[in-house]
């Protein structure tokens, strides 16, 4: 499941860094970004396609802040007995509300994000996961966000 680091050349790195945010909303946005990088539009599109297919990038497009759209986004955790881990992972992942799910090394060994269009949808998803898996879900709703921005550099 965990991919090995993919070898990136210098142009790939510059593309990943240049596309962290601020993508133009204009008629030919890729051409504008490509020009800034000294690339042709076709080469940028080709490399972007490869970076996405190689899963160096998991996504390219608008990042929505679901709370501003009336929805909710909640981190939740479970303590899953090792013997039941695969079954529970499958059950949890089967819910469309589960956006991300990570195994972590801790007694709380499954951490996932629930994203729903309506705030009430979180409680319903938690109840459904508890009913499906027979295990309690611990929600950790965000109370405050401290200066979050993309700072990763490829």
């Amino acid at each position: 499941m965990r991919p090995d680091p993919v070898p990136l050349d210098d142009t790939d790195r510059r593309i990943v860094n240049a596309l962290q945010g601020g993508f133009p909303i204009s008629d030919e946005p890729y051409r504008e970004v490509a020009a800034g990088l000294g690339l042709s539009e076709a080469e940028l599109l080709d490399r972007l396609d490869r970076l996405l297919k190689a899963r160096v990038l998991t996504r390219f497009g608008p990042m929505f802040q679901i709370e501003r759209l009336g929805g909710a986004f909640v981190l939740a955790a479970m303590k899953v007995p090792e013997a039941d881990f695969e079954r529970v992972a499958e059950q949890v992942n089967s819910l469309p509300e589960v956006a991300h799910n990570y195994r972590r090394e801790h007694a709380f060994n499954m951490w996932f994000v629930l994203a729903t269009e309506k705030p009430g949808g979180i409680d319903a998803a938690v109840a459904r996961i508890e009913a499906l898996t027979g295990l309690p879900v611990f929600p950790f709703p965000k109370e405050r966000e401290y200066f979050v921005e993309m700072k990763l550099h490829a």
Partner: peptide, 16 residues
Amino acid sequence: GAIRRIGAVPNHYAIG
């Protein structure tokens, strides 16, 4: 703010 940004989401593992 409904869109935080338009851009790429790197896979942390894949970029090292």
